[in-house]
Design a protein around this nucleic acid. Sequence first.
DNA 1: GTAACTCATTAGCAATGCTAAATACCAGTC
DNA 2: GACTGGTATTTAGCATTGCTAATGAGTTAC
Lengths: 146, 146
Amino acid sequence: MPDLIHDGDSAAAVSSLRSAVMLLGRRLKHQRVDESLSPTEMSVLGTLARCGSATPGELARKEHVQPPSMTRIVALLEAKGLVRLEPHPDDRRQKMVSRTEQAEAMLAESRSKRNAWLANLAEGLDEDEWEKLRAAAPVLEKLAHL
Amino acid sequence: MPDLIHDGDSAAAVSSLRSAVMLLGRRLKHQRVDESLSPTEMSVLGTLARCGSATPGELARKEHVQPPSMTRIVALLEAKGLVRLEPHPDDRRQKMVSRTEQAEAMLAESRSKRNAWLANLAEGLDEDEWEKLRAAAPVLEKLAHL
DNA sequence: GTAACTCATTAGCAATGCTAAATACCAGTC
DNA sequence: GACTGGTATTTAGCATTGCTAATGAGTTAC
């Protein structure tokens, strides 16, 4: 790993990444597939889709949100019938949160809409640019979870 | 440009990009260099650094925010001594917003702190991964501004 | 000169995050 | 068994930051 702080090119890349990620993130927030679902709620459903089920505390850590915030998010999702809450098998303080079939269907439907928006935006890129972005996507995802 | 929506790999990349950008964006929000400055305020200063000066309306469009929101942001920045407001030369409805020397200094100082945080996170990547990310950074920036 | 438009602002609201404190539970120690 | 300290979740209240609708000032086209 080069010295990211003192290598000029890398410093420029880091700065570029930051502003791009923040701006793109703000624009993505507006592209809700389901108007009644916030970005974080969507993200939680996505996490549950990957992990199967988790406790509120685990979800809060994974989403980088404080536990009280996750409490509200989970409550909203439950009210919408998108997650199910069950008692934790070993620890009665905790709960197990898992998604419902309804959430499954919504995720599938929304995924195509989301992809369409971003893909449409990406039409403004040429072949070469898109190739670079595609190569970097898994890396960016890894970075986001580090 | 390939058919981004129906090509499986590209669809996966798009989906991956979206979640990564949103999560990383949320984490970046917490890495404020000046605790009293919101991410959007920072972004406005960055835009002013690139553009020199602009009207509130132009800033709102560039930041993908509604005009009333920009009014408040500009007012807060002015109260902090980070931007200056001058009458528009041609149109008395509009104002020209430009950054102060204080903003300049703050941007420079904060840039290094921001870079340090992201660079530190990127230490978890190997050489090859970082190379991909660096290649994609300008593309991501272009995409965000499309 | 007036009608229609545009820019910025004000007022009020909604969403979404936070901290501090309360509640329920677990685990180790006397 | 009861006590003490620690952890998970929730409740209550607050701050931030975005929005829409409506207002006021200024411009432009007819």
